[in-house]
Simulated scan of single mutants.
Amino acid sequence: MTARSGAGHGAGAAAPPRYKTALVSWLSVYPIITLLLWLLGPVVSALPVPVVTLVLTVVLVTLQTYVVMPFMTRLFQPWLRSGTSRAPTREAEHPGGADQAPSWNGPSRR
Protein backbone atom coordinates (compact mmCIF):
# COMPACT_ATOMS: atom_id res chain seq x y z
CA MET A 1 0.00 0.00 0.00
CA THR A 2 1.42 3.40 -0.91
CA ALA A 3 0.80 6.72 0.77
CA ARG A 4 -0.50 9.45 -1.48
CA SER A 5 -0.37 12.39 0.89
CA GLY A 6 1.37 15.29 -0.76
CA ALA A 7 1.12 13.68 -4.19
CA GLY A 8 1.65 16.31 -6.83
CA HIS A 9 2.98 18.85 -4.33
CA GLY A 10 6.53 17.57 -4.05
CA ALA A 11 8.08 15.62 -1.25
CA GLY A 12 7.89 17.40 2.05
CA ALA A 13 4.95 19.64 1.15
CA ALA A 14 3.06 20.56 4.29
CA ALA A 15 -0.50 19.33 4.60
CA PRO A 16 -3.18 22.00 4.88
CA PRO A 17 -4.49 22.76 8.36
CA ARG A 18 -7.23 20.35 9.41
CA TYR A 19 -9.83 23.09 9.79
CA LYS A 20 -9.38 23.97 6.11
CA THR A 21 -9.67 20.33 5.08
CA ALA A 22 -12.76 19.92 7.26
CA LEU A 23 -14.40 23.02 5.82
CA VAL A 24 -13.78 21.98 2.21
CA SER A 25 -15.08 18.49 3.01
CA TRP A 26 -18.24 19.91 4.57
CA LEU A 27 -18.74 22.28 1.63
CA SER A 28 -18.83 19.25 -0.64
CA VAL A 29 -20.72 16.80 1.60
CA TYR A 30 -23.65 19.13 2.37
CA PRO A 31 -24.76 19.67 -1.26
CA ILE A 32 -24.24 16.00 -2.14
CA ILE A 33 -26.32 14.70 0.76
CA THR A 34 -29.01 17.34 0.14
CA LEU A 35 -29.20 16.37 -3.52
CA LEU A 36 -29.26 12.65 -2.70
CA LEU A 37 -32.07 13.09 -0.18
CA TRP A 38 -34.03 15.19 -2.67
CA LEU A 39 -33.53 12.73 -5.55
CA LEU A 40 -33.69 9.43 -3.68
CA GLY A 41 -36.01 10.42 -0.82
CA PRO A 42 -39.21 9.23 -2.53
CA VAL A 43 -37.50 6.00 -3.63
CA VAL A 44 -35.93 5.04 -0.30
CA SER A 45 -38.53 6.43 2.11
CA ALA A 46 -40.24 3.05 2.49
CA LEU A 47 -36.97 1.28 3.33
CA PRO A 48 -35.68 0.78 6.87
CA VAL A 49 -33.37 3.55 8.12
CA PRO A 50 -30.23 1.33 8.16
CA VAL A 51 -30.79 0.46 4.48
CA VAL A 52 -31.36 4.11 3.57
CA THR A 53 -28.19 5.04 5.45
CA LEU A 54 -26.26 2.30 3.65
CA VAL A 55 -27.44 3.42 0.21
CA LEU A 56 -26.80 7.11 0.89
CA THR A 57 -23.37 6.61 2.41
CA VAL A 58 -22.16 4.30 -0.37
CA VAL A 59 -23.17 6.87 -2.99
CA LEU A 60 -21.89 9.81 -0.92
CA VAL A 61 -18.47 8.33 -0.14
CA THR A 62 -17.94 7.16 -3.72
CA LEU A 63 -18.85 10.57 -5.18
CA GLN A 64 -16.88 12.40 -2.50
CA THR A 65 -13.72 10.33 -2.96
CA TYR A 66 -13.51 10.04 -6.73
CA VAL A 67 -15.36 13.07 -8.11
CA VAL A 68 -16.06 15.89 -5.72
CA MET A 69 -13.00 16.10 -3.44
CA PRO A 70 -10.44 16.04 -6.28
CA PHE A 71 -12.39 18.91 -7.88
CA MET A 72 -12.75 20.80 -4.58
CA THR A 73 -9.08 20.30 -3.73
CA ARG A 74 -8.04 21.81 -7.07
CA LEU A 75 -10.58 24.62 -6.71
CA PHE A 76 -9.47 25.55 -3.18
CA GLN A 77 -5.77 24.75 -3.71
CA PRO A 78 -4.48 28.33 -3.24
CA TRP A 79 -6.42 28.75 0.01
CA LEU A 80 -5.61 25.26 1.30
CA ARG A 81 -1.88 25.80 0.79
CA SER A 82 -1.73 29.45 1.91
CA GLY A 83 0.08 29.90 5.17
CA THR A 84 1.72 26.48 5.05
CA SER A 85 5.41 25.92 4.64
CA ARG A 86 7.43 22.95 3.58
CA ALA A 87 7.89 20.24 6.15
CA PRO A 88 11.35 20.25 7.75
CA THR A 89 13.84 17.89 6.21
CA ARG A 90 15.62 15.22 8.22
CA GLU A 91 18.80 17.30 7.95
CA ALA A 92 17.04 20.27 9.54
CA GLU A 93 15.63 18.04 12.27
CA HIS A 94 18.98 16.36 12.99
CA PRO A 95 21.91 18.60 12.06
CA GLY A 96 25.06 16.65 11.50
CA GLY A 97 23.50 13.88 9.47
CA ALA A 98 20.09 12.51 8.65
CA ASP A 99 21.17 9.02 9.61
CA GLN A 100 22.11 9.93 13.17
CA ALA A 101 19.55 9.22 15.83
CA PRO A 102 18.87 12.04 18.25
CA SER A 103 20.57 11.56 21.57
CA TRP A 104 19.27 12.38 25.00
CA ASN A 105 21.61 12.69 27.90
CA GLY A 106 19.00 13.00 30.59
CA PRO A 107 17.91 16.07 32.47
CA SER A 108 20.23 19.02 32.59
CA ARG A 109 22.12 19.41 35.87
CA ARG A 110 22.80 23.06 36.47
Rank of each mutant, 00 (worst) to 15 (best):
E93T: 12
S85T: 15
L54P: 08
T73V: 13
G10I: 02
T57R: 06
G97C: 03
G10M: 03
E93S: 11
L63K: 02
A13E: 09
R4V: 09
M72V: 00
L40P: 04
L23R: 05
P88F: 03
R90E: 10
P16G: 03
G6P: 05
T62C: 03
L54C: 13
E93P: 00
A13S: 14
A98Q: 07
P17V: 09
P31I: 07
R81K: 10
A13K: 11
S45M: 04
L27W: 01
L60K: 04
P50V: 11
V55W: 00
I33K: 11
A87D: 15
L56Y: 03
Y30R: 11
H94Q: 14
W79H: 08
L80C: 08
N105A: 08
L27G: 07
R86A: 14
L39G: 14
P31R: 02
H94T: 15
F76Q: 00
W104E: 04
L63C: 11
D99R: 07
G83H: 01
G96W: 06
P102K: 10
S25T: 11
T34R: 14
S85P: 01
G97T: 11
A7N: 06
M72Y: 05
P70H: 09
T53S: 10
P31Q: 02
M1K: 08
R109F: 07
G96K: 02
M69N: 12
P107W: 12
V49D: 04
A11V: 05
V52E: 14
L56D: 00
S85W: 00
Q100S: 12
P42C: 04
V52T: 11
D99G: 14
Q100E: 13
V61K: 02
P16R: 02
V67N: 04
Y30G: 08
W104P: 04
V43G: 07
G97W: 05
W38L: 14
A14E: 14
A22I: 12
A14G: 15
L60H: 05
L63Y: 03
A46E: 00
I33P: 01
R81G: 10
